[in-house]
Design a protein around this nucleic acid. Structure first.
Lengths: 347, 347
DNA sequence: GGTTGAAGCGCAAGCGATTGCGCAGAATGA
DNA sequence: TCATTCTGCGCAATCGCTTGCGCTTCAACC
C-alpha cells in the first residue's frame, strides 16, 4: 500500500494524504476524515525508508553499548527507550562486546540510518570514530569516553568518588588486604576505575596490601578472576569488583573455596544492578543512578519542548555507597585453611 | 557524501560507483580501484534509506522479544545477532514487556522497515498481528506463539516434557507439596507451562498438594510471589518456577524467611540461564537450548547458502533437566517454625 | 461589486541509491 | 578483414514519500 494508492481511492493527491497522515499543513475536515478512513481500511503503513529519505530525519535514536548482558547497560538503554517512546521516537541498540572494531561498525551502521541522535555508552574507544562523530551534525552523547564538540554532550560518572568511599569504608572495618577484580583492563575508562582504586588505596599507607585480577565482564569472568587471585597466593580480606555483574561470580568462587562472605572475605560490587540485591549474601555496592544517566542522554538527544537542548554539555553523575550483607569487619587474623564452615549470617 | 559526488570526482557515473561498492556487475579494474580510493578518502557512507528504497530489501533482521531483562531472551537475541552479523546482516531488537499493544507497535515499526526477516520471540499474542504477519511476504519466525503460513516457521519448546521431568524428579525425592511460581498467567504460552505443571502433578494421585503464586517476570516478581505464597499458609516442600529469572527472587524470599534451600524447601527454575549457576545454592533447572533456538531462527530468516530456506517449517526444542544444588530430599516432616539455621551445604 | 486574504489542495522536484537496457570499443573467431 | 561476442560503463526510470510554491475557490470587507 502506497500513499499514491490511498490518494487514488480518496480522489486526492499524494501530497494531501501525506499531510493528513503527518498532521502537517492545512487539510479540510471532510478530506481528512476520508483519507484517514481509507488508510485504515487499506492497513496502510508508511515506508520508513522513503519517509526518511524524503524527510531527512528519522525519529529514531541510536544507542551503542559495550555489553548488553550486563544489566548496567541494559538499564540505561531501557530508560532511554522509555523516554524516547514517550516522545514518539524509536530506539535501536547495538552491542560491541568491548571490541573497538564493532564500535566502528555499529557507528557506521547508525550513521547510515540518519538517526535523530546517537548515544555511545561504551567503555572502549576508537579515536577515529569518536572524532568523526564529534564533527557530525547530529546530536551525540558520550558516556565515559568522549570529547567535546559542537553537538556533543558528555556524561561521566565520578568513579573515583565511589571508589574512595568503598576503600574508606573497608579500611574502617579493619581491612588491609584488598584485591581489585576487573575486566578489559586495557580499555581506558576501565583503567580509570582501576586507577581510582589504586589511588584510593594509596591514601592509606599503614600495612595496606593490594592485588588485582582480571576476567571477562560476566559472572564467569568474576569467577575466573577470583580463582586466579586465590591461586596466586594473595589472600585478600576484601575484594572490590569493578561491577556487580562480575561480583556475582566472585561470590561463587569464594563459596566454592570454602570462604564465607563476609566472615572470611568481604566483597563489594559497583553499579547497584537490581541483581545485586539477590546475590547471597546481598551485595554491598556503589549505586550508579542509571535512570539519571538515561534521562541525561534522552534529554540531550530528544528535541526537548521547553529548554533548548544545548543547555548542559557536561554532566557528572555522583555515585554513592550502599552497604548490604557482603561486607563486614575484617577477619581477625590467620585466614586459616580453606574449608572452615560458615556460621551465622546477618539477615 | 553521495554516490554522485564520488562519481563526479572519479569521472564516472553513479551507476558505476554503485556497482563497485556493491561488487555487482562488471567494472574495470582501474575504475574500481579509483572509485574505491575516492570513496574511502571521502569517508563515503551509503544512505541506508535510499539503498533500501531503491533496492527493496534491507539486509536487516528484526527480533521482537517480551523481556530483554530476562537473560533467556537476550541470549536468543545474541545468537541470532551473531549469525546475522556473519552473514552481513544487522539485527534490530524491540521489547514488548509482555504488552500486546507494544507488540503491535513494534511489529508495525518493523514492517515499515522492509526487513529481510522478522522473528517474534514473545509470550503475548495479538491475534491481529500474528495473522497480518502470516499473510506477509517476508519470512517470519514465531517462537511459542504462532500460526502456519506460507512464509512462517514455528519454533516451540516442549515445555511439558521438561515439566514432567521436574515433577517426576521431585516426586522421587519425596516431595508431595509443590508450588508453582510464574508470571503473566493470563498469556497463553505461559498458561501452557502452568498447565504442563498441573498436568504433570496430576499424574501422581497420592497426597500430592499444589499451589500457585504469581509475580512479574523478574527476581522481584519471584520474591513477591514467594512471600504471598508463604503468607497464604501453604508450606511447599518444593517450589517450581516458570523460569530461572524469577527463581532468583524465590531463593532470596526463602532465605529471608529463614528457610534453607534445599534442606527445608527445594527450588527449581527453568531455562538454565547462565546466572542460574551463580545463584546460591546453584539452581536446579531445565535447560532450554537457546543457541538451538537462535540458530533455528537465523537459518529460517537468513538466505541460507545451500538448502532452500523452506526446509523445515516446524521445529520443536527438547529441554532437559539439570540437577544442581537447590533441590534435595523433601524435609522429613513438620516444617518446623521458621528460623531454623542452615547447616552443611553441598559443594 | 471588486479586492483581498486565507483555506484547501495539486504539481513537481527532489531525497540517494539500484538496475535493466543499450551502446561504444576491444577482443575474438573465421 | 569483417562479423560477432564480450567488457565496461552511462542513461534514465524507479522506489515511496515530503514539501515549497502556486493556483483555485470562497468568504469577508470596504
Amino acid at each position: 500500500m502506497t500513499l499514491e494508492e490511498i490518494a487514488r481511492q480518496a480522489g486526492v493527491s499524494p501530497s494531501t494524504v501525506s499531510r493528513v497522515l503527518n498532521d502537517t499543513g492545512r487539510v479540510g475536515e471532510r478530506t481528512r476524515a476520508r483519507v484517514l478512513k481509507i488508510a485504515k481500511a487499506l492497513k496502510y503503513r508508511p515506508d520508513i525508508h522513503a519517509r526518511s529519505l524524503a524527510g531527512g530525519s528519522s525519529r529514531t535514536l541510536g544507542v551503542i553499548v559495550s555489553n548488553l548482558q550486563n544489566p548496567f547497560f541494559l538499564d540505561i538503554f531501557r530508560v532511554i527507550e522509555a523516554d524516547a517512546l514517550q516522545a514518539g521516537y524509536a530506539v535501536v541498540v547495538a552491542n560491541t562486546d568491548y571490541r573497538p572494531k564493532q564500535l566502528a561498525a555499529a557507528t557506521q551502521w547508525m550513521l547510515g540510518h540518519r538517526l535523530a541522535g546517537l548515544a555511545l555508552v561504551v567503555s572502549e574507544k576508537e579515536p577515529a570514530v569518536i572524532e568523526e562523530l564529534a564533527g557530525e551534525e547530529l546530536p551525540v552523547v558520550f558516556y565515559d569516553v568522549g570529547s567535546p564538540g559542537p553537538n556533543v554532550t558528555n556524561v561521566k560518572t565520578d568513579y573515583y568518588r565511589g571508589m574512595q568511599r568503598v576503600v574508606e569504608y573497608l579500611y574502617a572495618l579493619g581491612h588491609r588486604r584488598m584485591a581489585f577484580v576487573d575486566h578489559h583492563a586495557d580499555l581506558q575508562p576501565l583503567q580509570d576505575r582501576r586507577r581510582s582504586f589504586l589511588k584510593a588505596v594509596a591514601r592509606f599507607s599503614d600495612g595496606m596490601a593490594s592485588a588485582e585480577a582480571h576476567g571477562s565482564d560476566s559472572p564467569d569472568g568474576g569467577y575466573q578472576a577470583t580463582r586466579s587471585l586465590l591461586d596466586s597466593g594473595f589472600m585478600p580480606s576484601a575484594i572490590i569488583c569493578v561491577n556487580d555483574f562480575m561480583a556475582l561470580g566472585v561470590l561463587r568462587a569464594l563459596r566454592e573455596h570454602g570462604l564465607a562472605v563476609p566472615e572470611d572475605v568481604s566483597v563489594v560490587g559497583y553499579d547497584n544492578i537490581s541483581l545485586s540485591k539477590y546475590a547471597a549474601p546481598a551485595l554491598t555496592t556503589v549505586n550508579v543512578p542509571r535512570d539519571q544517566i538515561g534521562h541525561a542522554v534522552s534529554s540531550a538527544l530528544l528535541p526537548s519542548p521547553g529548554a533548548s537542548r544545548d543547555a548542559v554539555r557536561d554532566i557528572v553523575i555522583h555515585p554513592e555507597l550502599i552497604v548490604r550483607d557482603s561486607t563486614g569487619p575484617a577477619a581477625v587474623l590467620s585466614p586459616g585453611p580453606p574449608g572452615g564452615a560458615a556460621e551465622g549470617r546477618s539477615s
